[in-house]
Design a protein around this nucleic acid. Structure first.
Lengths: 192, 192
DNA sequence: TCGGTACCGTACCAGTCGGTACATGTACCG
DNA sequence: CGGTACATGTACCGACTGGTACGGTACCGA
């Protein structure tokens, strides 16, 4: 399937979306940038919406593959490497596009159905699994994981707006510090 | 100034934007919904972009007034009340629109110039001020404040996608717990 | 009464959009 | 050779867009 030609068009479309977003992505402009006619985009994707669906899926797949590269990160060092990777300016276009699609989906715009389906869950589950291996109960582990996803996404949002990687990383380090302290002190404390 | 008529149109425009966003907000549709002609929107705002600027400013003002209502929240109780307020479904449209504008601005779309200017700073400063009153040094206080902004925004993003207020609130509570533990244990620890 | 100013609607413009009709080319299969 | 499926381009369509020209109405100060 996916007929080479279609894949080529899709890659180019994603590339274009990474540069200028999807909101004002017109078939004609895109086709001109690729070097074909908008007719072909309709042919291969059925409609503009079909193209958006394909782009959204591609972005979501990439984003999902970002969660964790090799193995389960348990040490601070692994987590810091993870942060360093996803906060790299090279990934900013990818993340900008991710958030644009996110907002589109939240606003129920056509072409992003299903985009939100596991957008939190697919990160929470593997992260919580790591904590549960260390003996945490499921409810707590999942809440903590959900928090960490929010931290990462919130800080990336900050990063995209300010570009201040150093300051944002400092905030991330504060988070790691808190987690570490709470973990070492936590077993002896009641929580609310 | 702002000539009543203009204000009326602006209010209606914001209302419309709260419902369906700004991306496909056309002057004609909006005018029809308000009960006037798109000519009047051009008349009062100069252009579509001028209207977007006005809407963005209105949203930013509202959002900024959201930070803290009365006084400086220091106790967990205050912070929890704050969270309860901003996570209320009644505010979801406001927050959806905020994030849509945020993304638009990140993508450098016209009409949102300056929207990002203090989008992190204006939250960080007052929050850090509270911590500094309690004796924290500025750098640490600001990093912690920046983290808390990311937590709130990241969790709101989660909330908008999943609608799971309970689960998201549980994650927020975990954050508060961490902060509390780290604060009580923190003075005696070195950080990295 | 006159001139100006604020406000508003109708009608129009040129441009762009997504989508379609139709013709064409090409390559493989019988 | 014919047929058939895929791929592609050109030319077009109706709809919608932001913006403008123009004309009108109502008020206000001179």
């Amino acid at each position: 399937m996916a007929s080479q030609a279609r894949q080529r068009l899709l890659d180019a479309a994603v590339q274009q979306a990474l540069e200028s977003g999807i909101a004002d992505l017109s078939l004609r402009e895109l086709a001109a940038a690729i070097g074909t006619s908008h007719r072909m985009l309709i042919y291969h994707f059925g409609s503009r919406e079909g193209l958006l669906v394909a782009v959204a899926q591609a972005v979501e797949t990439t984003q999902r593959s970002l969660v964790f590269g090799p193995g389960s990160p348990t040490s601070d060092k692994d987590v810091r490497a993870f942060w360093k990777r996803i906060s790299s300016p090279k990934l900013w276009p990818q993340e900008r596009l991710f958030f644009e699609l996110y907002v589109h989906a939240v606003l129920d715009r056509p072409g992003t159905e299903g985009f939100l389906d596991n957008i939190v869950e697919s990160w929470v589950t593997p992260i919580a699994a790591v904590a549960m291996e260390a003996g945490a109960d499921e409810r707590t582990a999942r809440a903590d994981a959900r928090l960490s996803v929010a931290v990462v996404r919130g800080l990336i949002l900050d990063l995209l707006a300010t570009g201040d990687r150093k300051g944002v990383t400092a905030a991330f380090d504060r988070y790691l510090r808190q987690v570490r302290i709470a973990a070492s002190a936590g077993t002896g404390l009641r929580d609310g």
